[in-house]
Amino acid sequence: MDLKINKLPVPTWNWLKVNDYQVAIPEEINEASYRINTKDVNLQSVQSFADVSLEGIEIGAGNEFKSISDKNSAKVCAVNVNKDTVVKEPIRIDFDYSKEENAFSKFAIKLENKSELTVIINFKGNPSFGGNDIRFSVAEDAHLTVVEIFDFEDNSNFIDSIGGSLEKIGGLKLMQLNRGLGNVALSCYTDLVGDKSTLDIDTGYLVRGNDRLDINYVAKHRGVSTDSKIKASGVLRDNATKTFRGTIDFIKGAKHATGDEREDVLLMNEGVHNNTVPLILCAEEDVEGGHGATIGKISDEILYYFEARGIPEDMVNELMAQSKLDAVSGRIPDEVTKEQLLNRD
């Protein structure tokens, strides 16, 4: 079955082929198995997102994916953090698709007032199709951090979708690091409903071979003085294809809102294909929005600097590519994960 996911909120010219991402998904999708490690949070397995009142929200991958998710029989792992509870140790979730063909997983994360939680998810293996649907609700002055590390093997196909809302002074920090192989689709739709709510997305990627990475982030500013920052930084090698869609949407009434999105792409081989699509939609006068992108190879000035110090061009390229991923890894707010990533290679 063909599915259109990661749709641009406002379409543009069809010939550019960036309005959505078409993927083939199997008819039968099983429930994915994963290992979840937490000492401090009670987990609950529920039949559907409706059981935790998260069925109605918009999600990053879009309605076609949502419909597939809702029909899928996989149980929802529901995480609820009580009022005034700060969970110090992150929840760690590990997926290994080595033994799974087509698998789906669902998480519902609800943070009550003034609570805090970090969730760190590692994906590895080689799913012929894998799907993950995370829906969240962050209440007043609560803060959710989600870190996802994608380390798939060759010939993998994976769709990761996140969607939810932030109440007053609530915050979501999302870090996504795609450092493996395969075709991966990432997305996040955040409804900044509450005044002074904040969204901070920090993404790093390496795409190589004939692989494809497709990204769709949407920040919907409804509340007063809301703030979003979307930052993506990555490297394309060989014949890789990457599409980045980022949308900052200021709804009327979102006074004093600010939003900014940046993408920085390093192109390393002749055959790469890059699409960068940073949208700002604005129906409110009293806002400040910005977007920027830099796409290209390493500048001659940087090459010259290193070459003057005896470092050859090939090595400079490798160093710069690695440094882009390491910079994102270094910002992960968990020492264990950071250590694993920075010392692995």
Binding site: V10, T12, W13, L16, V18, V265, L267, M268, N269, E270, V272, H273, N274, N275, T276, V277, P278, L279, I280, L281, C282, V287, E288, G289, G290, H291, G292, A293, T294, I295, G296, K297, S299
Partner: peptide, 20 residues
């Protein structure tokens, strides 16, 4: 604002800035 930058060549330098 709805810009698209499609780059199919590594030896390119593309910059974009927008403000509202």
């Amino acid at each position: 604002t709805i810009p698209v930058m499609e780059v199919n060549c590594d030896d390119a330098d593309v910059g974009h800035e927008a403000k509202i």
